[in-house]
Design a protein around this nucleic acid. Structure first.
Lengths: 227, 227
DNA sequence: CCTACCGATCGGTAGG
DNA sequence: CCTACCGATCGGTAGG
């Protein structure tokens, strides 16, 4: 099919947009490379989460940040690289949040207190604001290419080893029953699954929704024996 | 691009396949409509699970059962209808398995015993043989169209209400702590998450993998207080 | 259920 | 980062 009259639907040019004479078309902030890259990551995380990786086109992502269809490939080598970057960014942020939560505890805090901090931090990263990066990792992990998977797996290993130490301590203190490795996987499941059903308490909703504190308290009650 | 010479890559015809003279091209079993529909469902479940809904083409599914590219649409109105049918079939099978597991219990079985049967049945449906239907539901639930979602939701409600009754009984007996509704969601998460990491114990694997009995025992230890 | 096909969309690229 | 584009693939359909 020859396309001599340029197909207007292929790459819709801005209908309006009279060229601002002499001034740069983008503000300094918009031109900043790191900012544009971050904007692409955020849009990709949101759209990947909503429609899945394969269900989101690179054009969708470009449009969400006001770019034209080819421009995301100036920042990322491929759509797969964008997926890997979303997950890496998610884990980087989760690790940082985790470290801060533990650092805020008093020195010599109990295993129970450390566990509570980890659970609450996990819910924050999963369900708080700008919380699309980790859900994308949870939903689309199997679609990661092996080379990118290794990089993200290293970050996941770091994150999980912190949990494993706390869980081992709880197990030895008799606060937690069952094989600690399987228990870790099941606890992660219980927490991660919340991305499928949790909705933050909105204003004016008729039925009262659970808060992240509610979730954290329930998790502690469910998993730990009474002190 | 005019396609006067029929594009061989578009819809690859069987390279060999000399017509068997006089005999039907498909055996009776292959021609059976229900059988072909079931074959499509099974292939769709496997491929949707591996590559996601949007990452699987209807051509992939057709090829997996030996059909040509347009033929799935003789059995299903659309790709979306195929997704809905996979989930409906998964829930139908899960409900049947659940009912059988409870029926096999002695009359007057304790809440603990009923809980154990539900957990084991859940793992069977999730991780046993031909276990791609429910994982597709877990992974792709958000991609279901609203009308199809309602139908599957009704089956899910039935399935979950059986659990809720048992969990309420455990809670009243003091075997389970925490808000029963949130607890149900967290327990489902702990169990469902296993589709992300569980691998059945293979022959000759160096490290011993967990069995479904191991998972069930760990779940009981983790969630229930000591009797 | 196959044949033959359509219109739309997709990831990605060369050149600026 | 935009322009203009390519080759491939996709869901779906008419007619048999």
């Amino acid at each position: 099919m020859p396309r001599t009259p340029p197909d207007p639907s292929a790459d819709t040019p801005p209908a309006d947009a009279p060229r601002p004479r002499g001034r740069p078309r983008k503000t300094a902030e918009e031109r900043d490379d790191g900012n544009r890259r971050q904007a692409l990551l955020g849009a990709a995380a949101l759209l990947f989460r909503q429609h899945g990786f394969a269900g989101t086109s690179t054009r969708d992502i470009a449009q969400a940040v006001g770019m034209r269809s080819g421009s995301p490939f100036y920042h990322f080598d491929s759509k797969q690289a964008l997926l890997g970057a979303v997950m890496t960014e998610g884990m980087r942020s989760a690790l940082q949040h985790q470290a801060q939560a533990l650092a805020a505890l008093p020195a010599g805090a109990s295993a129970r207190a450390r566990f509570a901090a980890l659970v609450r931090s996990h819910f924050d990263v999963l369900l708080g604001p700008q919380s699309d990066f980790i859900p994308v990792m949870l939903y689309e992990w199997r679609l990661l290419q092996p080379d990118q998977r290794a990089a993200v797996q290293a970050l996941k290993d770091d994150y999980e080893s912190v949990w494993q130490h706390v869980l081992d301590a709880l197990h030895q203190a008799g606060c937690l029953r069952g094989d600690p490795r399987l228990v870790r996987l099941m606890i992660f499941g219980a927490l991660n699954w919340s991305v499928q059903w949790y909705q933050p308490p909105g204003r004016g909703t008729s039925r009262q929704r659970a808060t992240l504190d509610d979730l954290t308290r329930t998790a502690l009650e469910l998993f730990l024996t009474t002190p």
